[in-house]
């Protein structure tokens, strides 16, 4: 257990918690996080079976450092409290709260998690939370949700339910998600938490998927929910800084460190005017490159 709110989460792969063949070794595909699902993927009369399978998977399987998030059932169902107990007893890294519409929703789950951490002797605070935003109301209250709990590391858009609420549907163009994506990103950044984009379910259209990921990467998302391991490499490739970006960022960090010691505020790197405002961005590129395993420099 190593709760880390800021870890790299480019990919969160959904897996039905009831399917042993799926949950036995998803780490071989090297996603950043897996999302073991107790909610929509599991039929109502199979919820207890799925919890049983989930508990043993969490207890027995070495996921080789891949973050283990569990999507529990909605707060409007009779299942979620028992889900929370199993998640905590099993020792998952984080819980994803579906259909979150308010800070209150997060608080309810947080209370249940605290109780379970006590009940099962887990360290308090060891179970992180994330909130899925699936409705217009949720999008409008995203800021409240983002600031609701110290345990909350991020919010994620759930496009299917959101577009239904908006009386539209997934078009593949992204136009129907534009408002929600922008609003959630701004809220997440303002609150200092991460923000994740919705799934892309058409596995026959890998080009469409690539375009979708390119666009949400440029928007500023931290990562994307995925439904198939074939999607992992594309996301990681797009979210990994290029060698060109890394070399430039390295120069910027080094030059700023050096020049500021000499009392110089503005200077040029590779012909581009650089000042202190570039520092955080360049540092972020280096740490992303490090986390992605492509940076071998000394910064």
């Amino acid at each position: 257990m190593n709760p880390n709110k800021k870890r790299l989460r480019r990919t969160m792969m959904f897996l039905n918690a009831q399917k042993p063949a799926l949950i036995k070794d998803p780490y071989i595909y090297k996603p950043d996080s897996i999302m073991l699902d107790l909610e929509d993927a599991v039929a109502q009369n199979q919820k207890d079976v799925a919890r049983f399978s989930l508990y043993h998977a969490l207890q027995e399987i070495d996921y080789h450092g891949v973050e283990r998030v569990v999507r529990i059932n909605g707060l409007d169902t009779p299942y979620w409290q028992e889900d929370v107990r199993v998640c905590v007893a099993g020792g998952c890294d984080a819980i994803r709260i579906p259909k979150t519409e308010s800070a209150e929703d997060v608080h309810r789950v947080e209370q249940a998690v605290i109780a379970a951490e006590k009940e099962f002797g887990r360290e308090e605070g060891s179970t992180l939370l994330m909130a899925a935003i699936e409705s217009a109301r949720g999008v409008m209250r995203a800021m409240d949700v983002c600031e609701s709990s110290e345990r909350l590391f991020g919010i994620a858009l759930s496009g299917g339910d959101y577009t239904k609420d908006m009386q539209t549907h997934i078009t593949g163009t992204g136009i129907e998600l534009m408002g929600a994506r922008q609003n959630m990103l701004i809220a997440a950044r303002a609150a200092g938490v991460q923000c994740f984009d919705t799934v892309y379910t058409n596995l026959d259209d890998m080009e469409g998927f690539r375009k979708d990921v390119e666009s949400i990467h440029l928007m500023g998302f931290d990562g994307k929910s995925i439904v198939n391991p074939r999607q992992i490499n594309i996301v990681h490739e797009i979210f990994t800084p290029t060698q060109k970006d890394i070399i430039f960022a390295e120069k910027v960090v080094k030059e700023i460190d050096e020049k500021s010691a000499q009392g110089i505020g503005v200077f040029t790197v590779d012909g581009k005017m650089i000042d202190i405002a570039f520092y955080d961005g360049a540092k972020r590129t280096i740490s992303l490159a490090k986390a992605s395993g492509v940076y071998k420099g000394e910064l």
């Binding site: 071989i28 595909y29 391991p229």
Partner: peptide
Amino acid sequence: TTDMRKLM
């Protein structure tokens, strides 16, 4: 095949 295990 679209089985990621085989593709990998």
